[in-house]
Write a protein that binds this DNA or RNA. Structure first.
Lengths: 116, 116
DNA sequence: CGGCATCCTTCTGGATACTG
DNA sequence: CAGTATCCAGAAGGATGCCG
């Protein structure tokens, strides 16, 4: 039946979404990507300041995971003392649309809660 | 300086994204929303089947949280035995764009990993 | 500056069984 | 069918201190 095919298609899509979220799990990962999305190149301490409430341990850990998943590129500049720059890879940049949508939705959502 | 304003704007946007993810935290919430996004009206056991790997406990819990945050509407139909229908609220439907973007990205991402 | 190591608490979520 | 209850392991994540 065609229903069957439709059903299977939906499951596939839902799994795709789940896969996407697998890479973006953790309390801060999306915020980090957002920071890099809005700033292009960004240093460790700058991201630490961008993302409200994150600890250096978590930033370090989640950045590493994002790097492993090829969303983020890490560059060490040999200044004194050491400076490290992070940026989205071409692949990571494909999330920009998602981030922007989430930004809009989040801003609206905030109004919705504060409104009460 | 204008730089200062830009910086503040970015922080606001990043916080908005974080707010959004606050509502969508948990391992399964986005997948559940995706299921309701692609199916419109959906029963408890159907979602259980849609979302691969979720337990009834988690489904129940996360649906409740989504309901509290006004993303999902729950309707009990008085059939025998009881049937419960879930659907996105108008507000929740505003996430459809995000879900669709994530679906596309997730599908691509899957290729990327399997390709290796 | 950009981390890593350690400790410790809280939260997450799976398995299983039970209820109206 | 649509949940709830309990039990419990392991993961997440905060605080703090140390290092090149």
């Amino acid at each position: 039946m065609a229903d069957d095919k439709f059903q299977k298609d939906c499951k596939k899509k839902i799994m795709a979404v789940h896969d996407a979220m697998d890479v973006l799990n953790g309390k801060w990962k999306i915020s980090i990507v957002a920071s890099l999305c809005y700033h292009n190149k960004r240093r460790f301490s700058e991201i630490l300041n961008d993302v409200n409430g994150i600890s250096n341990k978590m930033l370090s850990k989640e950045l590493k995971e994002l790097e492993i998943n090829k969303l983020v590129k890490r560059t060490v500049l040999d200044t004194q003392p050491v400076t490290v720059q992070y940026e989205l890879t071409e692949y990571g940049k494909k999330l920009q649309t998602v981030i922007k949508n989430l930004t809009d939705w989040g801003a609206e959502h905030r109004k919705e809660i504060i409104g009460k």
